[in-house]
C-alpha cells in the first residue's frame, strides 16, 4: 500500500502532475531499479553524491557501485546489500519518475525523505507492509472522525484498497476523497449493505474506464460495455462487500446482509450527494467507489 500512497503524496505535494503520475504508472512495469535511487532511499548516498558518481561514470568505464566505493561514499557491503534487496514498489515508481526526468535525484531525495518522515515510515515497515502504518496512511487520506462508524468506514476503505491490489492491480494511486460529482456521464452499479450498518455502495466510471477495469478484473478480452463488462463491476463490488461483511462478522460480531448489485445505469450526481467518494487513478483512467454517509 506504500507504493499507492507514495503516488498520492507526490501529487498532493505538487511534486508531479497528474499526467506525469499516469505516465509513470504506465511505465513502471518496464522500470529497472538503479543503484543511485536505491542508495538515496537507504540514506547511503546523498543526491549530490549520486550526481557526482554518475558524472564520473560517464568519463570512465567502471560500475556505479565501484565508483561509489572508491570515493568512500559506500562500503562494498552496502553496495551488495542494495543490489540484492527485493525492490520495493514505491521505489519503482520513484525510479520511473527519475528515469522520465519528472524528478531529479535531489527532488527524489527530498520527496522520499519527506514521505517517510510524514508517516514515520522505515524501510522495514514498508517491506513488511506494516498494518498500523498503512492504517495511518488511510486515516490521513480520509477523515473518518465525522462518520457515524469510523472503525467500519476505515475497515471498508482499507479492505477496498487491498482488494484492488489483489483483484485488479497494484498500479493505482488513491486520489483525494470527493463528496460530490459534477459529471453526468458516469455509469454505476449499486449494492446495498443491510443491517446495523445500512449503506449504499457503488462502483462508477466512464464507459471506457469500466471496460478497462472489466478486462483487468475478469482476465477476459472485453472490448465493449457488454454483459461481461457489467458483470465485472457487479462482481467486484459484491466480492468486496462480501469480504467486508465477513470481516465485520468475525471481528465486530456485527451481522450484515447484502442486496444483489443493480444493473449498470447512468449515475445522477444526487445519487451520491451524501457519500464518501473514493477515486482511484489507474493507468487506464479513474475508477470511483462510493459509500453513503
Amino acid at each position: 500500500m506504500f507504493t499507492q500512497f507514495f503516488g498520492n503524496f507526490l501529487l498532493n505535494e505538487k511534486l508531479v502532475t497528474p499526467e506525469q503520475l499516469v505516465d509513470a504508472l504506465q511505465q513502471k512495469k518496464e522500470t529497472r531499479m538503479k543503484l543511485g535511487v536505491l542508495a538515496i532511499n537507504a540514506g547511503y548516498m546523498t543526491a549530490s553524491q549520486v550526481e557526482r558518481v554518475h558524472e564520473l561514470q560517464s568519463k570512465m568505464d567502471k560500475r556505479i557501485g565501484d565508483i561509489a566505493v572508491e570515493l568512500g561514499y559506500m562500503t562494498e557491503d552496502q553496495v551488495m546489500e542494495l543490489l540484492h534487496a527485493q525492490p520495493l514498489g514505491y521505489l519503482l515508481l520513484g525510479q520511473t519518475m527519475v528515469d522520465k526526468g519528472y524528478l531529479d535525484n535531489a527532488q527524489f531525495e527530498n520527496a522520499i525523505n519527506a514521505y517517510k518522515e510524514k508517516y514515520s515510515l522505515t524501510d522495514e515497515d514498508i517491506a513488511n507492509n506494516e498494518d498500523s502504518k498503512v492504517e495511518s496512511l488511510i486515516t490521513s487520506l480520509v477523515d473518518f472522525s465525522k462518520t457515524s462508524h469510523p472503525a467500519l468506514y476505515e475497515q471498508f476503505v482499507s479492505l477496498l484498497m487491498n482488494n484492488l491490489v489483489r483483484f485488479v492491480g497494484d498500479d493505482f494511486t488513491p486520489l483525494e476523497p470527493e463528496y460530490e460529482i459534477k459529471s453526468t456521464s458516469f455509469k454505476s452499479t449499486m449494492q446495498g449493505i443491510k443491517g446495523e450498518f445500512e449503506k449504499e455502495t457503488r462502483i462508477f466510471a466512464d464507459e471506457a474506464e469500466l471496460i478497462q477495469f472489466a478486462c483487468r478484473y475478469s482476465g477476459e478480452d472485453i472490448t465493449e460495455l457488454d454483459e461481461y463488462a457489467e458483470a465485472s463491476g457487479q462482481d467486484f463490488i459484491n466480492l468486496h462487500n462480501g469480504l467486508f461483511t465477513v470481516n465485520v462478522s468475525n471481528e465486530e460480531q456485527i451481522e450484515l446482509q447484502l442486496t444483489p448489485p443493480t444493473p449498470l445505469a447512468e449515475l445522477t450526481p444526487n445519487e451520491v450527494s451524501n457519500c464518501l467518494i473514493l477515486p482511484f487513478q489507474f493507468p487506464f483512467g479513474t475508477i470511483r467507489f462510493s459509500i453513503s454517509l
Partner: peptide, 25 residues
C-alpha cells in the same frame, strides 16, 4: 459458493442443509 461467508449466513446455510460452503473468490 458465495462472497458473504458471515457467521449468520453460514449458520443459515448449514442449518437449511447445505453440504458445504465455498468463500469467494
Amino acid at each position: 459458493a458465495s462472497s458473504v461467508g458471515t457467521q449468520s449466513y453460514l449458520k443459515d446455510a448449514i442449518k437449511a442443509g447445505a453440504s458445504d460452503f465455498l468463500q469467494k473468490p
